[in-house]
Each structure stands twice: as structure tokens, then as C-alpha cells.
Amino acid sequence: MTELPNSTDRKMGLVIDLDTCVGCHACVISCKGWNTENYGAPLSDQNAYGADPSGTFLNRVHSYEVQPPEGHAQLVHFPKSCLHCEDAPCVTVCPTGASYKRVEDGIVLVNESNCIGCGLCAWSCPYGARELDLAEGVMKKCTLCVDRIYNENLPEVDRVPSCVRTCPAGARHFGDLGDPDSDVSKLVAERGGMDLMPEMGTKPVNKYLPPRPKDQIDDQIDILAPLLAPVAEEPKGFLGWLDKALDKLPGHSEGGSN
């Protein structure tokens, strides 16, 4: 049934560090690589080498520019995949029971052999985490690499989601967010981990760590600076004479008003 469990034993999920992500898209590629040949139907591409290529991805990296009221703009790379929400609207809207949330670890999955491809779960997801595969006609989504994390055929180091294993910057962390003593929970507490679109009431399990504030150099921190020759603000000498002489000529001068 597509009723959500009242609570799950564990809340497995990802913590994504927006401060550390360099926007290399390696997680996108490793996700597609692992998931196209493992759990469920392959992630198909349409017109892959044509003029208008597109395909199914479970993880996509956006980039945003944040312009504060004062100071320089900041570029933030923003990986986005299923947040395995506690109140997952994609599960309750499913008419067939194909969409479900696991009691044991909170992972939201699709039983692809029951999916009718109506698309309603994708409509209900605010995060764009679900994509209908055009070749297979069923809904695809992040499985948190459920076929890796418990897979005893893999070396222990590989028993994490493919995106986490691949990330060269260490921007992705995997663990139990229901356990306040887990590494990921501590990280979230320490860095002020946040929910995306909290107003949607989905209670995402995945958390995002906001970029750390940029260094602010308010005071003179370089003790040698006062001893250095100051950079000339006003032109002096010949340049000063030239500047004044040119100012006197009729016509408009661009640039500074010195």
C-alpha cells in the first residue's frame, strides 16, 4: 500500500555540502553509470548523438549565482536528487502502490513492475527527483543505491551510494540521519544543514550544508602594509600636469574624476 510508514527504523540519506561541491558532475555520471546497469530498468537516452539529446538522470547538478546585497556574487554548485522525504507526497499519490517508502531504512523506491507510468508522483514532487523513462514507460528515481549499500559482494568501502563514492571533493556524505550520533547528523548540526522548500511540508531526509561565509577583511590584518609605499590615488608630477591639462580641453572625459 502507498500509505507512508508512521516512522522508519533508520533514515538513510545524503548530506550535500554546497561549500565543497566544485560542480564537476562526476556524481551525475557515476549515478547514471551504476543505475543504468543495475537496479530496475536502464536509464535510457533519446537522440543521444542527435541535435536534441536528452535522457533519464537520477541526479543533476545545477549552478546558481547568489548576489548578496553588498559584495561579490557567489557561485554555488547544487547537486539535486531524491531527498527521500519523510512525508513523501510521491508515495501517497501513487494509484497502484508501486511507489513506497521502506520501513527499515526510509528509502523511497518504485516497484517498476507495478508502475503504470501515469506520472502523478513526478507531478507531486517539488524537487524534480522523479523522471519518467521514455523507453521503459516507468518512473525512475534515486534508490540511494540500495543495491550497493547492503551488497556484501562489494568491498566495504564501496557500500555507499555511487555518487558519494565518486565525489572527488568529498561534498557528499551518506548515513543515518535518524540517529543523532551518526557522523552525518553531527555534520548537519555543526554546519546548520537545511531543508529544500521546507514550506512544502515534505520533511526531506537529505540535508544541504550551506556555503560557509566568505572571509571578511574589515581591519588591517597585514602588519607590513603601513610600511609599504601607498599606491598613488592622485596622479602627481608629469602625469598630474597632463591630467589637469587634458581636463581643461573641451569635451567629455570618461573614467574617474581625478
Partner: peptide
């Protein structure tokens, strides 16, 4: 299969 989840799903 869409007839089964009437407890939660408006589509059902």
C-alpha cells in the same frame, strides 16, 4: 492496478 490504493491516492 490503479484501483488498489484508494486509501491514499485520489487517482485511485
Amino acid at each position: 492496478r490503479a484501483f488498489s490504493q484508494w486509501k491514499t491516492s485520489w487517482l485511485s
